[in-house]
Design a protein around this nucleic acid. Structure first.
Lengths: 214, 214
DNA sequence: TTCTTCATGTAATTAGTTACATGATTGA
DNA sequence: TCAATCATGTAACTAATTACATGAAGAA
């Protein structure tokens, strides 16, 4: 156990892995698969991170690693410890951060005046496609649960909260992209010359006002 | 000009700053304010990054820095160069990434079985509050544009695309949080014992199916 | 038996954050 | 004239990514 690792603090990523370990023991590869397929939608991390992070959990006494050899190479299986479960429960009591969004395509749209109308439309089309593709994946998972064949069917009640969030999010992105495409279609060729439609603006403000009401 | 910086590549963050410089020259502090108030909603970065990144733009010849002293200390004003404008236009033609979401609160919900029902409800309440507060800010900006008094009123057409996205996003988060609160309210005290309501699940799937249709 | 894909990991690099420091300005 | 806050920046650190490497398993 390196002192470095023992000293280093728990990040949200650490808890994400710890949470998975609370479900069952996993090999690192299984963890990467699970992240790619599901948890990664709300907490995306590079694969190599997932090989590194559990070591920290072990160093902190929150997880246990067992090496089982496969042929000439080793494979590591991680499982949670009692201390790990307590740490996880403690984390669930702390206030977490709200959604953090990074949206490069929207950033590009935000500077659309410096490119062509075509650029903007292409970006919107890509955003729409993105939403449809992600939704497709999410839908496939939802159907397996509806059929009673989900990977963690006993956790269906909990999983469905996140599933619904993603469903709503993808729908929202798609609808927005279509709305925005109609708007941009009406622009002149030079986006810098585009005039705002006050009626559209007013409608957006009304929507926000509806959300502001308790 | 350090070779290090000249060699380093442009990131999306670099382009975010470059895009702002294309609007007008800014002092670094003004850039931090602008990011905090508006661009940061879709491309959040720490303040110190915003002091560092423009230096790279200068090293790459995409921006110019002018030092103007304020009392005994200096202040840097950055402006874009012709090369910078071309680089920005080129970037607008490249495919950008779709939305990337990090949602710690939802991660906590995902492991709700290891905490109490109260924990889950508190997390959902926090998510709802988050959405309302963010919406409030966004609404305030929208109103200034509707009144014709936006900070960049001439860019209202473009700004309104992003404004609407955020409006829809905050509404979606709030609605989801309220929906989920009702669900969790109906859970037994031990979240691990919660049973999924198949009717709810079916409705989520139907929603996703609606999005999947062209 | 060879090729490809799955599986398992490390190393090098970088992007980003947290912490710190201090001058300028304003209002009590 | 003092305190608080605004404004400006650097340094140290760390989380995370990209690139690389290679063995195992299964298909052709």
């Amino acid at each position: 156990m390196s002192t470095d690792q023992a000293r280093s603090r728990m990040t949200t990523t650490s808890y994400a892995l710890l949470g998975l370990l609370a479900l069952k023991p996993w090999t690192t590869y299984e963890l990467t698969q699970q992240m790619e397929r599901s948890l990664g939608r709300i907490w995306p991390r590079a694969t190599s991170k997932l090989y590194e992070e559990p070591k920290k959990l072990v160093a902190l006494g929150l997880a246990r690693a067992s090496d089982d050899p496969v042929g000439r190479r080793r494979r590591t299986v991680y499982s949670i410890t009692a201390r790990g479960r307590r740490a996880l429960a403690r984390w669930l009591r702390t206030p977490g951060a709200g959604p953090v969004l990074e949206f490069e395509q929207l950033l590009q749209l935000h500077f659309a005046e410096h490119g062509s109308k075509q650029d903007a439309l292409a970006t919107l089309a890509a955003a729409r496609t993105w939403a449809i593709e992600r939704n497709e994946e999410n839908l496939a998972v939802g159907r397996t649960y509806l059929a009673g064949e989900g990977l963690f069917q006993d956790r269906a009640a909990i999983n469905s909260l996140g599933g619904r969030f993603l469903t709503d999010f993808y729908a929202m992105v798609k609808d927005w992209a279509e709305w925005a495409t109609a708007i941009v279609d009406a622009w002149p060729d030079d986006p810098a010359a585009a005039q705002v439609d006050m009626a559209d603006l007013a409608e957006s403000v009304r929507r926000a006002e509806a959300t502001a009401e308790l």
